[in-house]
């Protein structure tokens, strides 16, 4: 087991190193940040001064090595725009994004699995067909459009929920700031979370439907039924449990996606998370923040993959054994 984990960890570190180069090089080739940062009426000398101060007069490999050196000691550079450590800027806003992603994931799971299972067990019923049609909409409607429509309906026309932003009523749970313990917090998070969840909800519905259809015809289900178990026990224990394996795998990875790609939702709802920070940093060409953001996302993905791999090997001994042999 430990050999397995060590091997996975080393692979993960290699991935992070390669990504750091790709990310840095990719961001480096885009534009010149001083063209955006420096005031229009600054003269040439002032421009040169800012370029030198930000270290942009150095050749690419020097900038990259400096970045790597800093990164090894936990410093991902200072934001050009705010003059504060990029990592700190991101960590300040990460809780808001994690909270949003968590609620979205919860919505996707709590609605997606029952709906999908239902649709899988009774595929010909009109309800199942409605669910499946709905999931196509969830896949195909663009997030920003749905977000704006939701704001228009629930905030502007009906006036039930606030249109933008996050609640002020923050509670600290084990040092983690969250707004989920207040009504105002839920009022603010509901629209963006549903917006962010729609795609994942459709995904979970499809996954659990496919799983249910497959599992229902398995011998052990027939056997359970033959044994005279109640229908609810068959579905809740025997069907559900077997559906959950692929769903958990995918969701583990998708959570990373929720965090990384909440950009659109956060922008539409002015949710003060890392996605909004990323968009603003891109428009200001704030390279250190963009790079730090992408590095953190890479780390999150690598970590989640690792966790999923390990969880898999625990759940399914065949994976572990295979890896040991090779």
């Amino acid at each position: 087991m430990s050999v397995f984990i060590i091997r996975r960890l080393m692979q993960a570190m290699l991935v992070v190193l390669v990504m750091s180069f790709l990310v840095f090089a990719g961001v480096y080739v885009v534009g010149d940040p001083t063209q955006i940062l420096v005031a229009d009426d600054a003269d040439q000398a002032e421009r040169a001064r800012v370029i030198a101060e930000l270290g942009l007069d150095q050749p690419f490999h020097m900038q990259y090595l400096q970045f790597l050196g800093g990164a090894l000691s936990g410093n991902l550079g200072e934001s050009f725009r705010f003059n504060e450590p990029a990592l700190q800027l991101i960590l300040e806003r990460l809780p808001a994004t994690l909270e949003l992603a968590f609620v979205a994931l919860a919505i996707a799971v709590f609605f997606g699995i029952p709906l999908g299972t239902w649709a899988g067990l009774r595929p010909e019923s009109p309800v199942a067909k409605t669910i499946m049609t709905g999931s196509i909409l969830g896949f195909s409607l663009p997030t920003f459009w749905v977000g704006i429509m939701m704001i228009l309906l629930f905030a502007v026309i009906l006036g039930w929920l606030p249109s933008t932003g996050r609640s002020d009523e923050i509670t600290y749970v084990l040092g983690f700031p969250t707004t989920l313990f207040s009504l105002d917090g839920w009022a603010h998070i509901l629209l963006p979370a549903v917006n962010l969840a729609l795609f994942k909800l459709s995904l979970v519905i499809r996954l659990s439907r496919a799983g249910a259809r497959e599992v229902v015809h398995q011998d052990y289900i027939k056997f359970a039924r033959a044994k005279g178990l109640s229908e609810s026990r068959v579905i809740l224990v025997h069907v559900m449990k077997n559906i959950l394996i692929p769903v958990v795998t995918v969701l583990g990875l998708e959570f990373g996606g929720l965090v990384a790609f909440s950009v659109v939702t956060e922008t539409v709802f002015a949710w003060p998370g890392i996605g909004k920070l990323l968009i603003e940093s891109i428009s200001f060409l704030d390279r250190p923040v963009i790079v730090a953001y992408l590095m953190i996302i890479v780390l999150i993905f690598v970590f989640l993959n690792l966790v999923v791999d390990i969880a898999y090997s625990i759940l399914d001994p065949r994976v572990r054994l295979q890896d040991m042999k090779s």
Partner: peptide
């Protein structure tokens, strides 16, 4: 659009 909506929603 979010800015305009925020005004129309009274936020």
């Amino acid at each position: 659009p979010a800015r305009v909506a925020a005004l129309m929603a009274g936020d």
